[in-house]
Design a protein around this nucleic acid. Sequence first.
DNA 1: TTAAAACCTCAAGTTAAGTCGAGGTCAAGG
DNA 2: CCTTGACCTCGACTTAACTTGAGGTTTTAA
Lengths: 155, 155
Amino acid sequence: MSVSLQRELSVGEVAQRSGLAVSAIHFYEAKGLIASRRNAGNQRRFSREVLRRLAIIKVAQRTGISLDEIHEAFATLPEHRAPNADDWRRLSAGWRETLDERIRCLTQLRDQLDHCIGCGCLSLAECPLRNPGDELGDQGCGARLLEPATSQGTP
Amino acid sequence: MSVSLQRELSVGEVAQRSGLAVSAIHFYEAKGLIASRRNAGNQRRFSREVLRRLAIIKVAQRTGISLDEIHEAFATLPEHRAPNADDWRRLSAGWRETLDERIRCLTQLRDQLDHCIGCGCLSLAECPLRNPGDELGDQGCGARLLEPATSQGTP
DNA sequence: TTAAAACCTCAAGTTAAGTCGAGGTCAAGG
DNA sequence: CCTTGACCTCGACTTAACTTGAGGTTTTAA
């Protein structure tokens, strides 16, 4: 196995260079996230481009994107030519927004939690967050911090 | 089903007031996250405290804590008395740190991604992030953005 | 040439966090 | 009394993202 410039890569080489398990690479191929051609003995041969794709997959996953979503995003890449810098940039930029949104939601949660640690509302019944009327601050980040004030009982 | 002050709650009432499915409440009980006693007819009866526990579970889950971790945290609560404000505060404060850490990691990822969108390194080979030597900036937030520079090939 | 290492396919297993359904019991209202 | 709705248990199913293993083939290095 000599070091190469442009030769195609075996699955083991891809695994080593990407830091992924061989089984994961098989899995991604089965999912249509990456492609390979086969040599005479039916073994996979990958172009170097696959390393970039795998890197992109890993980044996207870290931002909380599912493989299905990654697949959809990859589907927007042009079919007839290899993706170029702008293509990747477009995907990255889209995911950056998702990531930003997630950060925003978690930060909001943290602030609520800070408030609750301060006022003890996670432990006592008088939490201001239990009251409705804070729809203003609600940016679609998921559920309220405490029970959704069913407005029955607790007289 | 009359509104009550202090009566114990049936599983349906807990479900309604917590916004969880009955099956989820069964599941949490089976996992040891909440407890109930049984009435004469073998039906679950929950004390009101369970609502707070469920609220805590939901918050913790939103911060990315697993049920197992929540279980561990709950295990640090005193056994012989009902948890008080300080107990809950302690848990919340611990999870706040976890949350903060997650926000920090995602923010770092976002900044890296910003950089990569700018320089196109997600698409081209000259990305500065490929080079080692940035252990300084690495705060244990997971993998590098690109391949871990196996330092063979690409002469 | 030959033995080990790498590769192949396909099915089944794993974990988390629940959901769903079957088959049976309990409780409340008319 | 009887029906309806809420409850009970238990096992099987779900999804995501892989991993593991069995049984067989190809490549590579000595």
